[in-house]
């Protein structure tokens, strides 16, 4: 196969292409430095861990349901969705205070890193209608979130986790 053998022309062509690619990559790295660091991990929110009871059981639904807590879990850096991650959820609802064990439950993320747990309607407590979520297992660093509902009439609330490997 004579035409497969590298000639001076092909060496020059591939060499210049590689140099151009290297230059472009380097330049884009300078122009968009954030891309080099990747997706930043979610920091814990103030008050996020309040009334946390570690080890909430994985449940199909907390209490009678009627309200949806949804969200996603991704890995810091590359943003890859994380499947089978346990997210613990609790709130002051129509069925109990935050400190009540029956107000707590956990769920696992699906193959796309999404989670969704039905729970009783969240009602305002301590001045704001809010929920609590926790990632607290070994593979990643612990994160506590405390999202606030934009309106007290909302029947769902979502929270996004970006986890940093432990």
């Amino acid at each position: 196969m004579i035409h497969d053998r590298p000639t001076r022309r092909t060496i020059l062509a591939t060499g210049s292409a590689a140099m151009a690619a290297a230059l472009l990559t380097g330049a884009s790295g300078l122009l968009v430095p954030a891309r080099a660091q990747g997706l930043a991990p979610t920091p814990s929110m103030r008050g996020g861990s309040n009334n946390y009871l570690p080890g909430a059981p994985i449940v199909d639904r907390i209490g009678g349901g009627g309200f949806w807590m949804t969200g996603s879990v991704r890995r810091a850096g590359d943003g890859a969705p994380l499947a089978g991650v346990r997210i613990q959820i609790w709130a002051h609802t129509t069925e109990g205070h935050e400190r009540d064990p029956h107000s707590h439950g956990a769920t696992l993320t699906d193959a796309n890193g999404q989670f969704r747990l039905e729970m009783p309607q969240i009602v305002p407590a301590f001045g704001q209608p809010h929920g609590h979520l926790a990632y607290d297992d070994h593979a990643f660093q612990t994160v506590f979130l405390r999202p606030v509902m934009p309106s007290v009439r909302d029947t769902s609330l979502s929270a996004q986790f970006v986890l940093q490997p432990a």
Binding site: R46, G47, G48, N50, N51, R99, F126, G127
Partner: peptide, 23 residues
């Protein structure tokens, strides 16, 4: 009364580390 209802929320408020601005 608030302390008895949710101690960590009141401790956050007293230490000025509460997430709620009104505290």
């Amino acid at each position: 009364g608030l302390w008895l209802t949710s101690p960590p929320d009141v401790i956050d408020a007293l230490l000025f580390t509460s997430p709620t601005p009104f505290s």
